[in-house]
Design a binder for these strands. Structure first.
Length: 314
RNA sequence: GCCGCGGUAGCUCAGUUGGUAGAGCAGAGGACUGAAAAUCCUCGUGUCGCCAGUUCAAUUCUGGCCUGCGGCA
């Protein structure tokens, strides 16, 4: 029976490194589950593994669209599942690796997305209405069309408010009618194991700070300048992501470079906390403390042992 | 050495006409089904510098001490 190994966890815990190492022994290929690695030209700020670091292991779902494309979970789900099927058809093991919880879940837990595609024009209209008249007017509309979702969505959560209305407009059915399906992977007879990497909070924060400094040294500033030069607007979703947003603001003169850097650090720390929150509630994850393993090789050995116990891989 | 201003939550500070205290930031917890590195929700007990005095009661008033900053020597 074919199997898939997922490696998840907050940013900067060493997922990529472990994945590449495992891929070597398991004859595996890596399927990235990261909402920002899909973008071309965004390398330093996303901590995308370099060609060297990949050590010849095929990586999928990386560099597949330009930064001006609105890439959605649904796009991700579709492409990633195709990728996984393809890898298995070639008798290799897929390693699903990344920190975007929603993306991981869309593959592992069978989210089924309905026919309601994103509608940028409608979104902009609703955005404008909210700005002019406040969120509450949208919230009241939602209460009318979809009281169940209105119950669940916070009136201030404009993103979810807009999406719920968008679904209603596209399908005439409330978003609350969307149901969870059994896992697609189970349907394909693919066994899965979920490995979580984590770390003492204090130490992770130190690592994040160090990594941001390293990104600056590697030329994040030039990377962002180049993106702007290529014509990618700071208002793009991709450009609103961690690091890119703050550097863009700095270039626009909103604050000093020093402030931009500490802002990136702080926001990345907060982001990692949100990732913890997301993954912690998944009871299937087997956790490893990467800072407690004496070395990367003992972490690697521990993971291999678990895999062997569960009869994964060779 | 003298004069002035401070010492209150991890940080910056507010405040109590005497009844043991509250903001911002930092931080913590949580939500999450087509923008998710996004978006949103919740959470503030700390020897009020130390010691004594006055008082039913002091972080608040008084005195001394310690300490930081500025000025004068």
């Amino acid at each position: 029976m074919p199997s898939l190994i997922a490696i998840v966890g907050p940013t900067a815990t060493g997922k990529s490194k472990l994945a590449i190492e495992l891929a070597h022994t398991l004859d595996a290929e890596i399927v990235s589950a990261d909402s920002m690695l899909v973008y071309k030209h965004m390398n330093i700020g996303t901590a995308k593994p370099t060609g060297d670091e990949m050590r010849g292991i095929p990586h999928h779902m990386i560099n597949i669209v330009t930064p001006d494309v609105v890439f959605t979970v649904h796009d991700y789900q579709r492409k990633a599942l195709t990728c996984i099927q393809d890898i298995i058809a070639r008798n290799k093991t897929p390693l699903l690796v990344g920190g975007t919880g929603l993306y991981i879940q869309s593959v592992l837990d069978g989210y089924e997305f309905g026919p309601a595609d994103t509608n940028e024009v409608y979104r902009r209209q609703l955005d404008w209405i909210a700005q002019e008249h406040g969120n509450d007017i949208l919230y009241q509309a939602l209460r009318l069309f979809d009281p169940i979702s209105a119950e669940r969505i916070n009136p201030n959560d404009l993103r979810r408010l807009i999406r719920a209305l968008e679904v209603y407009k596209a399908t005439g059915a409330p978003i609350s009618a969307q149901k969870k399906k059994p896992s697609y992977l189970a349907e394909m007879d693919i066994r899965t194991i979920r490995i979580g990497l984590t770390m003492d909070r204090e130490r992770l924060y130190q690592r994040i700070d160090k990594r941001v400094d390293e990104m600056m040294r590697q030329g994040l500033l030039d990377e962002v300048r180049n993106l702007l030069l290529l014509g990618y607007s700071p208002s793009l979703y991709s450009m609103q992501s961690l690091g890119y947003k703050q550097i863009t603001n700095y270039l626009a003169g909103q604050y000093s470079l020093e402030e931009a850097v500490s802002e990136i650090k702080r926001e990345t720390r907060r982001f990692s906390k949100r990732q913890y929150t997301w993954f912690r509630r998944d009871p299937h994850i087997v956790w490893f403390y990467t800072d407690r393993a004496e070395s990367q090789s003992s972490l690697y050995a521990n993971v291999c042992e678990i895999l062997k116990d569960l009869e994964f891989g060779p």
